[in-house]
Design a binder for these strands. Structure first.
Length: 524
DNA sequence: TCTGGCACATC
DNA sequence: AGATGTGCCAG
């Protein structure tokens, strides 16, 4: 773990956005020209995505976990994440419709183990699970709607069941992951399938975690118990806890909770502790300054500023931060983003060429852009939305997700794909460092959801971004990119919710690479 | 490692 | 009051 990449974290916090965008969010006033394909940079501006800022809610809490090495339980039935992923979004055009969705991509290509009170690499990661996208139930909705209050993804669930029929996000235990937020413009002028679909991706490195079937680090257990209302029963104030435990154990005398014991044993602190995780650049980066208006409880920016935890090496988290790492990264760096932040916003606008173009590419794991999945009609009008019910969250799945190629992706809507409920196909081989060449068509699409991506970490290391963490940006999140999607999206049959469970609709997008060009098909 | 059942908590 | 979200623990 911990490795070297961490260092970067410390950077500072930038206050400025990576992009040129105005710091402020004057959402209301911006005019957002759509469709002009200009150069990427320009494009983005035109797309109106550059002024979007995302602040992680409860960033301080996330940071506490991150400093120890966040673990998220995954169960067959699906388990929520805690802390919950909630964000405050500003800079959206009040009248424009957007789709907000999340995906969770591999943080690297290693498998971890927790021994001697610390995480360490124990081997190579298993093939990435089919990537699934969790579309916020309110999608599509106007910028005014999203800006009105915190956007919560707390209902998102994680599972280790590769055949999960509920649309939960499938992860492998003992593997590191990085959640990502994608904001997709769903205007009429920007329907999916159109070349102009603009979107941006935000990654908060402090939300990286290792999936586990049972907690490994007692410190994490304690943090969960202390902060999750549903775990209140395990809090114990001293006596209470002892008595409770005794009771549970059927003993007459107080028993020391296991967790407590462990803690003491390891008391020293998290294993990670001494080494900086680096990931996090400055705390604030993430959230900061802006953090939250409303209730975002988060603390003031200043608080956030506190010095980064310097050391610690978590295997997992380390690099995660740089979501962008992949392809986009370079560009981004160069272009603008400030490195320092954890949040990187890569806003590079991007115009994708048509899919067919051909770049040779092989994305083993291309992750379809979430958008793609949606109804072609675009989330906008939402056939989708209406039908599915906007309130329902949709899951999209793709084969291996990757962060990197945002650019080259093409999205297809799979949204509600039947496949969702069906077992996934064999995953494409995990390619840590695939030749991502660009891809022609699909490629572009891949954007957001690129799943199989190589581990974030690695990239990070190489990335300029990483270090950059100190960059100027203020934003919390990093925008991985914002650009236009141009690929030909295919529209998949809409999923008819006959399936029982589904609060979530899963869309699984399978990418088949043929002739260098990926095709998206819905799993049947 | 992972699973299912449990008591306790929130919603 | 029932459904659901928690970590614990035995297996």
């Amino acid at each position: 773990m911990a490795n070297g990449g961490d260092q970067f974290g410390l950077a500072e916090r930038p206050d400025s956005d990576c992009m040129d965008s105005p710091k402020e969010t004057k959402q209301e006033n911006h005019s957002y020209p759509v469709n002009s394909p200009a150069s990427p940079q320009t494009a983005s501006s035109q797309q109106g995505m550059e002024g979007i800022k995302v602040f992680l809610h409860d960033r301080e809490l996330w940071t506490k976990f991150d400093e120890v090495g966040t673990e998220m339980i995954i169960t067959k039935a699906g388990r929520r994440m805690f802390p919950s992923y909630k964000v405050k979004v500003t800079g959206l055009n009040p009248k424009t419709k957007y789709i907000l969705l999340m995906d969770i991509v591999p943080g690297d290509d290693h498998r971890y183990k927790f021994a001697d009170n610390k995480w360490s690499i124990t081997g190579k990661a298993e093939p990435a699970m089919p990537g699934r996208l969790y579309v916020h139930p309110d999608s599509p909705a106007t910028g005014a709607h999203w800006s009105r209050q915190l956007v919560s993804f707390q209902k998102l669930k994680l599972t280790n069941n590769h055949l999960d029929p509920f649309g939960h996000i499938i992860l492998n235990s003992m593997h590191k992951y990085q959640p990502r937020l994608h904001i997709v413009k769903a205007d009429e002028n920007n329907g999916f399938g159109s070349k102009n679909t603009a979107f941006c991706t935000h990654v908060f490195s402090e939300t990286a975690f290792i999936a586990v079937t049972s907690y490994q680090n007692h410190k994490i257990t304690q943090l969960k118990i202390e902060n999750n209302p549903f775990a209140k029963g395990f809090r114990g104030s001293d006596d209470n806890e002892l008595h409770r435990m005794a009771k549970l154990q059927g003993k007459d005398y107080p028993v020391v909770p296991r967790s407590t014991v462990r803690q003491r044993a390891c008391s020293t602190g998290s294993p990670f502790a001494g080494e900086g995780r680096g990931l996090r650049g400055s705390p604030e980066a993430a959230g900061s300054p802006y953090s939250c208006e409303n209730d975002l409880s988060s603390s003031s920016p200043q608080e956030l500023l506190s010095p980064p935890p310097t050391h610690y090496t978590l295997p997992h988290l380390q690099h995660i931060q740089q979501p962008q790492g992949y392809h986009c990264t370079k560009r981004k760096v160069e272009e603008n983003c400030s490195p320092g932040n954890r949040q990187h916003s890569y806003k590079k606008p991007f115009t994708c060429s048509s899919p067919s173009e051909g770049e040779s590419y092989y994305h083993p794991s291309s992750y379809p852009h979430p958008l793609a999945n949606n109804p072609a009609s675009g989330l906008t009008d939402s056939p989708y939305s209406s039908e599915m019910g906007q309130r329902q969250a949709c899951m999209f799945a793709a084969s291996e997700p990757r962060l990197d190629e945002l650019n080259c992706t093409s999205w297809s809507y799979t949204c509600p794909l039947p496949s969702a409920m069906t077992p996934m196909e064999p995953y494409p081989p995990y390619t840590p460092h695939p030749p991502y060449s660009s891809s022609p068509q699909g490629s572009r699409l891949s954007g957001i959801a690129h799943q199989s991506s190589p581990p974030l970490g690695e990239h990070v290391a190489h990335n300029p971004y990483q270090s950059q963490s100190s960059g100027p940006s203020t934003q919390t999140s990093q925008n991985i990119h914002s650009r236009q999607l141009s690929p030909p999206l295919r529209e998949y049959p809409r999923y008819t919710p006959s399936l029982s469970p589904p609060l979530y609709h899963t869309l699984e997008t399978h990418t088949h690479i043929r002739c260098g060009v990926p095709e998206w098909s819905a799993a049947s």
